[in-house]
């Protein structure tokens, strides 16, 4: 019994983080048909923000500094996202392959800049809470509960915003038919910018959350961007709900497989699963009705 609870909680931890990373990717992909390969670097930026704030000696104790980083990281992520959107992405609209090359270049540059500023060694970060909590007979780290709770709240808020606010309606309109939405007076460029910054902020937030569990290195984001792409492909482009569903699938499968197999083999199996599922359900679990599907010949 307690074993099952631990498995479920482990899966939920991974799912929360994956969904936070994937949502931004899925929305921007749906809106602009842009696949941002630098998206993983926002996770890295988040994690490094945490280590930087905690290491700064003129500041608070590390536990308190964590909360500062949790607020600061999404802001930094959004700012960097805005800069990238302004400098590169918006200039390459309608050139998907070029966008992927350019964002890949940005990803390489960001990684190496971080390495040059902070060194190649893993950074030290501390979780704000320690100790274990008992739930349904399972003995489980308190910090992981925090991840699940925070992640869950943010994801639910994003889902709600996407579904019920005017902003969400406009966003969905742009995803489904950009030209029509623009002719109805929606400022698609502004929305794209906001969505890009928002997605970057979410990924940076995920970076802070996962940093105490991971080794904070410059290629931290690379591991997550690969998984986030499976999530988006499986879940459906341009759909928040799809991202969550895809995260449940990828995160759940990987957590379960990790118990039986070597982690790299588990990732390989998840990839194989993703590839086979794409064949069976080309439009994803929750089709987002995105124009990107047409471009891919998937419509």
């Amino acid at each position: 019994m307690s074993g099952t609870v631990v498995v479920i909680l482990n899966a939920l931890t991974l799912i929360s983080i994956l969904a936070l990373v994937a949502i931004g990717l899925a929305i921007v992909f749906g809106m602009m048909d842009v696949m941002n390969l630098a998206h993983g670097e926002f996770v890295t930026i988040g994690a490094y923000t945490l280590s930087f704030v905690q290491a700064a000696r003129w500041m608070l104790p590390p536990e308190t500094a964590y909360w500062v980083a949790l607020v600061l990281a999404p802001l930094i992520g959004a700012l960097v996202g805005l800069i990238i959107e302004w400098a590169v992405i918006r200039r390459l609209y309608h050139r998907p392959l070029d966008t992927i090359l350019a964002t890949f270049g940005i990803s390489l540059i960001l990684q190496k800049l971080i390495e040059l500023s902070f060194g190649a060694l893993p950074q030290v970060v501390v979780a704000p809470v320690s100790g274990m909590v008992d739930l349904f007979g399972a003995h489980y780290p308190a910090y992981r509960f925090l991840i699940i709770a925070l992640g869950g709240v943010v994801i639910a808020a994003t889902l709600a915003a996407f579904r019920w606010t005017q902003f969400g309606v406009d966003l969905r309109a742009v995803i489904q038919n950009r030209a029509m939405a623009e002719s109805l007076g929606i400022d698609a460029k502004r929305l794209t910018r906001i969505a890009f910054a928002g997605g970057s902020a979410l990924a940076s937030l995920a970076g802070v959350l996962l940093a105490p569990l991971a080794s904070v290195e410059t290629h931290l984001g690379t591991f997550y961007i690969g998984k986030a792409f499976f999530v988006v492909i499986l879940g459906g482009i341009g759909s928040v709900l799809g991202s969550v569903a895809g995260s449940v699938l990828v995160g759940g499968a990987e957590t379960l497989l990790n118990y039986e197999l070597d982690p790299s083999l588990a990732s390989a199996l998840v990839l194989a699963l993703a590839i086979v599922l794409v064949r069976l359900r080309p439009r994803g679990i929750v089709p987002g009705y995105s124009a990107a599907h047409e471009l891919l010949g998937k419509g």
Partner: peptide, 30 residues
Amino acid sequence: FLLYAGVRLHFFAVLTMAMSLIATQIAASW
């Protein structure tokens, strides 16, 4: 699986990138 499902362009590019990433991990751990 991918080409017959209509996966093209950046989608295809990124999936192959993921394959190479995972193959590196397998080579390092096996």
